[in-house]
Simulated assay, not measured.
Amino acid sequence: MTPGYDQLVRLFKSLPGLGFRSAERIVLHLLVEKPEKLNQFIEQLHDSAGLIGPCGSCGNLAEGDHCSICLDENRDTDSICVIERVPDLFAVERSSAYRGLYHVLQGKLSPLRGIGPEQLNLSSLDKRLKEGSVKEVILALGNDLESEATCHYIQEEIVGEQNIKVSRIGFGLPSGGGVTFADEMTLKNALESRRALDFS
């Protein structure tokens, strides 16, 4: 093997969800089996990196200032579904059980890993809620201690005394499980069976 080949395999292996064998298959596919795809792959990656960024409102992927969901006039603006990451948003959308707006936190509170409120997309959520049109915040986070702490923080510090209902999905999600890998029916049931939160 050449040093260049080894470096490419290591780079692909560093991506989420790819082990050594998967990374090796991708590198061999691009270098040996379908080399004509290599330049197309590089150009598309470069072009997309320049076009795609976070939505200025919710944090979803956008080609411009705002994402297609925030710009969709047919969405229900009374509710905001708070999720951890963009793949969670995609999973909820696939379930077709929710037609409101979203807010992507880009993580969850984790003092042990040095992730506090300042590292999350919380200030823009606070700003959106203070605009006054939202009636319900749906917390669609995973079923673990860090998610519980994040939900508690949002209800106490972000929603606070505002006259906004706060609910939490959870039905059907396994302990320690997240939203991204739940199937559509489980997410549909989780959203439809959400419960109001009460930390008092």
Score class of each variant (00 low, 15 high):
Pro35Arg: 12
Pro35Val: 08
Leu38Trp: 05
Asn39Arg: 15
Gln40Thr: 08
Phe41Tyr: 11
Ile42Asn: 07
Ile42Arg: 06
Ile42Lys: 02
Ile42Glu: 04
Asp47Met: 06
Asp47Gln: 12
Ser48Gly: 08
Ala49Lys: 15
Gly50Gln: 03
Leu51Thr: 07
Gly53Trp: 07
Pro54Val: 03
Gly56Leu: 05
Ser57Leu: 04
Gly59Pro: 08
Glu63Tyr: 00
His66Ile: 01
Cys67Ser: 05
Ile69Gly: 05
Cys70Leu: 03
Leu71Ser: 15
Leu71Asp: 14
Leu71Arg: 10
Asp72Ala: 02
Asn74Tyr: 02
Asn74Trp: 00
Arg75Leu: 00
Arg75Thr: 01
Thr77Gly: 11
Thr77Phe: 12
Asp78Ile: 03
Cys81Val: 04
Glu84Gln: 12
Val86Phe: 01
Pro87Ser: 08
Leu89Pro: 13
Leu89Asp: 12
Glu93Trp: 07
Glu93Tyr: 05
Glu93Met: 13
Arg94Tyr: 06
Ser95Phe: 02
Ala97Lys: 07
Ala97Glu: 03
Tyr98His: 07
Arg99Leu: 02
Arg99His: 14
Arg99Pro: 05
Gly100Val: 05
Tyr102Ser: 11
Leu105Glu: 04
Gly107Trp: 03
Lys108Cys: 02
Leu109Arg: 14
Ser110Cys: 09
Ser110Asn: 14
Pro111Trp: 04
Pro111Glu: 14
Leu112Trp: 06
Leu112Arg: 13
Gly114Asn: 09
Pro117Gln: 05
Glu118Lys: 15
Leu120His: 03
Asn121Val: 05
Leu122Val: 12
Leu122Ile: 11
Leu122Lys: 09
Arg128Glu: 15
Leu129Tyr: 06
Lys130Gly: 09
Glu131Met: 10
Val134Asp: 13
Lys135Ser: 15
Val137Tyr: 09
